[in-house]
Write a protein that binds this DNA or RNA. Structure first.
Lengths: 218, 218
DNA sequence: CGGGGACTTGATGGTTGTCAAGAAATGTGG
DNA sequence: CCACATTTCTTGACAACCATCAAGTCCCCG
């Protein structure tokens, strides 16, 4: 499938810079290419007919952006200045090494699917504080920034990502800070003070338990 | 990539039957193959260390099941007796024609990604009744069964899929029935009585609005 | 230094989860 | 095929949580 040159030096691929707040692609367009994020962060979102806006993900270094055929179901916008690698739709070979939970040898589809599952997992947490906590832990892994997190997105984006309101997200940050699990140095600068306790409090140790199952199929 | 024989007659692929309640694969195993659903319905779920169970999806005819490499992050169980097509991991060519929102010419990864996005969209609805309504509409499309829906999964599975409790799901069904949008003939047999009103009430017309955007990248 | 947007926080009402009980459906053995 | 037992589903009451409305504060940038 894509076994040869797993990390090809994207010779035919366009590298491009994107300014903060620029649209990378729009919802409703016909997809002609997809991107890899070399640096910076993008917000991927979906606008619904009832007025809701759903942020389906944040794309960071190594993430695949806008891989789909036909009409785009999401829009992507740069939250910071970014560097992207543009790929043709017929190509599903990633050019950049993975970051965070991604793996070497992934195809682009595989990476996109993994990211989608991570977003699903976040929405599975029943309470707001847990969702926000899990979001911080996920971002820490994905940004590979240690315990000092720089989150360029506004609260409303986090809210629309986690299925909450801006207010509830803000309260969750405050509660995590009150419990001395994180420290807020300005709204966009979070320091994770007590990682193990944050993991425990959130319930997000991300290790799964094998269930007692029935007989296997073969 | 996968342009030749988009719907190959899966000659090297195994067809297999699965009994109701049988495990198709387990969480924590190493993935060795993936499946397509030829008939029946499977539940895909993820068990978390804090005891939660998240149903990440239901796989119906045409859906791709368990396409991932390395350790499986989900388990799959048959809700009904099923027929599956087993594929090698090196193969990403689907054998079955699409159903519902899927398209001809999809690769397996593409189908899996689409299904994942549909689940994400469901969790985006802010209220329980809307989520349940949107779930019914989605199932109607995917099962291609007209307005008479046979839902083999128990309420708890729907709840774990939508991020709700069994009780709330049950109340939502009751409310939709009270409003004469659906009719319940037994817990697993739903008839959609007033499709346009259900769509309107749910806010799930699934057509998106193009947002006013900034300048485009290129 | 001043203005405007983003963020935080408080008060309140609506929605959902929890606890508990009862009704309906399903499966089993006679 | 029917009676019974068990599971699943529904419904009610109450508590917890979150969205909404409304100020007030902080931050950023001109």
């Amino acid at each position: 499938m894509n076994l040869e040159r797993p990390f090809a030096h994207a010779s035919r691929n366009h590298y491009l810079s994107v300014a903060r707040d620029a649209a990378i692609y729009r919802q409703g367009e016909r997809a002609t290419c997809w991107y890899e994020v070399a640096s910076g962060i993008a917000r991927i979102c979906q606008f619904h007919s009832d007025g809701r806006r759903q942020v389906t993900g944040f794309a960071v270094r190594g993430d695949v952006l806008g891989i789909e055929r036909g009409i785009r179901e999401t829009a992507a916008e740069a939250l910071t200045t970014m560097r992207l690698v543009r790929h043709d739709l017929s190509d599903s070979t990633v050019a950049l090494p993975p970051s965070g939970p991604l793996q070497e040898g992934d195809s682009a589809w595989e990476r996109a699917l993994r990211a989608s599952h991570e977003s699903l997992a976040l929405l599975g947490f029943p309470k707001a504080v847990q969702r926000v906590g899990a979001f911080l832990l996920l971002m820490m892994r994905r940004l590979e920034s240690g315990t000092r997190l720089e989150l360029p997105m506004p609260r409303i984006d986090i809210a629309d990502h986690l299925g909450l309101t801006m207010h509830t997200v803000s309260r969750a940050f405050s509660e995590l800070a009150r419990r001395r699990l994180i420290e807020l140095q300005g709204p966009h600068h979070v320091r994770i003070v007590n990682l193990p306790e944050l993991v425990a409090f959130t319930g997000a140790d991300m290790t799964e338990v094998v269930p007692r199952g029935h007989q296997l199929v073969a």
